[in-house]
Amino acid sequence: MPKSKVLLCEDEYIVALDLQLLIEEFGFEVIGPFASVSNAMREIGETRPDMAVLDVSLKDGEVYPLADRLQEMGVGLVFHSGHVNDHEIKTRYPQAECCLKPVHTSRLKAALQQAAPLADC
């Protein structure tokens, strides 16, 4: 069975590297990390990820256009947000998972697993 592909968007490179390593440790293949929405958009035109871990604000703006596109594609979404209670995300993406910054390893893992079946099953 090939590894599930996880699209990672995070403009803070230290954090991105950390997340990448963590996700890889969980046994997924990481696409990215991308610091900007435009780059990520370009990538998903070529590769279809199974899941995505998204920071809300990226270098070139908020991540929502990308998230919308991913949701249409049926990609499981995990938001990596700085806000404790982000209503906007909950209402726009009711099935998405949220992980608060700074990320907790087990929480991220659980979120990814939660999101994963959508792609796998």
Binding site: E12, V15, L21, G82, K101, P102
Partner: peptide
């Protein structure tokens, strides 16, 4: 500010994890 603080925490926590490796 909130964003930045959170970022800072993320960076620190990332740094800790990276450093530990």
């Amino acid at each position: 500010m909130n964003h930045r603080v959170k970022n800072m925490f993320s960076i620190i926590s990332g740094m800790v994890r990276l450093a530990s490796r």
